[in-house]
Structure formats: structure tokens, C-alpha cells
């Protein structure tokens, strides 16, 4: 078969600009941004009031801004881990089906563009919106910290902070593609939103429980070990961790842990023999932390691409006729 002629990116810019303008001006975005902002400020404020006492002794005081939690308030990253997927799903769940429901799809596709441009434009506009919101929040937190703590962040802190931003963006991107896939598959926006949120709940809340049960069933705990006060077997721990890494939220949590807690040396089980000669609690250089989370970060990016490919295929095969 002959190839189709013309670039798939014709019209991409027009779609991107329009969708970005729509997102930034939409009331949905406004609500989500304020939600993130207010919870973020609450979390950071309590962190700062605690951190003021340790400013001098902690070399990574800026990173504590993100990770410090005091009951009952969660830490800033816990808030983000919860709200970023919500925001991403909010941006994507009606990307394609709304065009059908407004009966604009056939009119738009009758213009000299490929469907590629429409889908990619919508995805990247959503990602750009997420990026704008995240960068804004990040700068606010750092600025807030600068004013109240009175110390400038070190180079390592800035690079770790930026690393965190990138990981958070891809985590959001993954949920954005999931939402867009749902918007392709389901003609009703409500169904699409519910399915996307359901998948998110499954991955975040239910999956860890399922994994625990599964690991327990496959490697039943040894009665003798239990009696001697030992933990679960190595096989069980490894299986549980491997399975739990199917969920993007685990990948995100692990990446954030390694990036924002420089003392993190390993994300899996560690034996006493491996710790021989190590200086406990000493921070890793940024490059080493990056190496540690490389598989997790790659997994998030790969997941985004794979889900996008599924959405792309489903959209290409869809009949234009409503």
C-alpha cells in the first residue's frame, strides 16, 4: 500500500494553541488550581513552622519543604501525588468525545489535517497546562521557603527539585493519556471520567492491597520464622514489590522518595552484608539518586507512550460519523 502523503503535524500548532487557551481559561482548571494551591500552602506552612528550628543543621532544608508532614496535614508531595492525577484526568477525560458531542468532529476533520495532529495537539496542550500549573506551584513553594527560611537553596537541592518536577509531570502525563484513551473509547464524558477515576483508584488504593494478598498467597509466611519474630520471606517481598511497580503511583512514590530524600540508597530490600562499610544517613550525590530512579522514570515515560499509542490506534479506527 502506498503511503499517505503530507505531514501528520500540519495543523498541530493550531490545535495546540486553541486547546491550551481553552484549558487555561476553563473554570475546571481554575477550580483545580485553587485546590492544589490551597492544600499546598497549608502543607508548606506547617512544614515551615517546624523547619525553622532545624534550618542550620539540615543540609537539605529546602527539600524538607516538600516532604515534611505533621499530623493531621499531609506533606506537600502527598498532596501532589493525590491531586496531579486528578488534575490530569480533569484535563483529558472529554478531549475527544466532547468533539463528537458538540458535533464539531466531522467539521474539524474535514479540514486539511490528519487525526494525528488533533490527538497530539490535545495531549501536548494538556501536558503543557499541567506543566504550567506545576511550575507555578513549585516556584511558589520555593519562593515561600526563601522568604521564611532565609537561606538560599543549594545547587543539589535545585537540581533535585527540578528532577521532582519532571517526574511529577510525567506522572501527570500518564494519567492524562489514560483519560484521553477513555475519551476516545467512551462517547459519554461522564462514563469516560468515571472509568479514568476508577482506574486511578484501582492503581493507587486497591492495587497495593491486591498485591499484598497475592504475594502472601504465593509465598505463604513460614510459621517458624513468624514465631521467631522474623518478617516475610525475601521471595514475598520481592514479588510484592515487582507487582506493585505495575501501578504508576508506586513508580512515582519511589522516584520522589529517592529524589527528595538524598539519603535513600536503595528502593528494594537490602541485606546487612550490602551495608557493610557504608556511612548510614549520608546523602547520595544527585547523579546517583538519578541512577536509582532511572527504571522508575523510564517506566512512567514508557507507560505514557504506550497508553498514547493505544489511544492513537483507537482514534484512527473510529468512524467519524456520530
Amino acid at each position: 500500500m502506498a503511503r499517505r502523503s503530507g505531514s501528520p503535524f500540519i495543523g498541530f500548532g493550531a490545535v495546540f494553541v486553541k486547546e491550551l487557551a481553552d484549558h487555561l481559561g476553563s473554570s475546571r482548571m481554575f477550580v483545580l488550581e485553587w485546590l492544589v494551591l490551597l492544600t499546598g500552602i497549608g502543607a508548606v506552612y506547617t512544614a515551615i513552622s517546624d523547619l525553622k528550628t532545624t534550618t542550620a543543621s539540615d543540609p537539605f532544608v529546602f527539600l524538607r519543604l516538600f516532604t515534611h508532614a505533621r499530623d493531621p496535614l499531609p506533606s506537600f508531595i502527598a498532596v501532589l501525588a493525590f491531586l496531579v492525577p486528578l488534575m490530569a484526568i480533569g484535563l483529558g477525560f472529554d478531549a475527544i468525545n466532547s468533539e463528537f458531542n458538540r458535533r464539531t468532529m466531522s467539521r474539524i476533520l474535514a479540514q486539511p489535517i490528519y487525526r494525528d495532529a488533533l490527538l497530539l495537539g490535545k495531549f501536548l496542550a494538556g501536558l503543557a497546562t499541567l506543566a504550567i500549573a506545576l511550575v507555578m506551584l513549585w516556584l511558589l513553594v520555593v519562593g515561600f521557603g526563601l522568604i521564611t527560611l532565609g537561606v538560599p537553596p543549594s545547587g543539589a537541592e535545585v537540581s533535585r527539585g527540578i528532577g521532582f518536577l519532571v517526574v511529577a509531570l510525567f506522572y501527570g502525563g500518564l494519567w492524562l493519556t489514560v483519560a484521553i484513551l477513555c475519551s476516545v473509547l467512551f462517547r459519554s464524558a461522564a462514563t469516560s471520567a468515571l472509568v479514568a477515576l476508577g482506574l486511578w483508584l484501582l492503581a493507587t488504593v486497591l492495587w497495593p492491597l491486591i498485591v499484598q494478598f497475592a504475594a502472601n498467597a504465593i509465598y505463604p509466611p513460614n510459621a517458624v520464622t513468624l514465631l521467631l519474630g522474623g518478617g516475610p520471606s525475601l521471595g514475598q517481598v520481592e514479588l510484592q514489590q515487582t507487582l506493585s511497580r505495575v501501578s504508576p503511583s508506586t513508580l512515582f512514590d519511589e522516584s520522589v522518595l529517592a529524589l527528595l530524600h538524598p539519603a535513600t540508597r536503595a528502593l528494594g530490600p537490602v541485606f546487612m552484608s550490602q551495608l557493610e562499610g557504608s556511612v548510614m544517613g549520608a546523602p547520595l550525590p544527585f547523579g546517583q539518586s538519578l541512577l536509582l530512579i532511572w527504571p522508575q522514570a523510564t517506566g512512567l515515560v514508557a507507560g505514557t507512550i504506550i497508553v498514547f499509542v493505544f489511544a492513537y490506534i483507537a482514534f484512527q479506527r473510529q468512524e467519524v460519523r456520530a
Binding site: A2, R3, R4, S5, G6, I10, S106, R107, A110, Q111, P112, I113, Y114
Partner: peptide, 13 residues
Amino acid sequence: IRAPLEVKRRVGY
């Protein structure tokens, strides 16, 4: 099918 962009440029729908 092969040159949809050229066709869509010439056709209003």
C-alpha cells in the same frame, strides 16, 4: 485515501 490533505484543501464540507 492517499492524499487526504490535498482533497480536504479543495473541498468544503
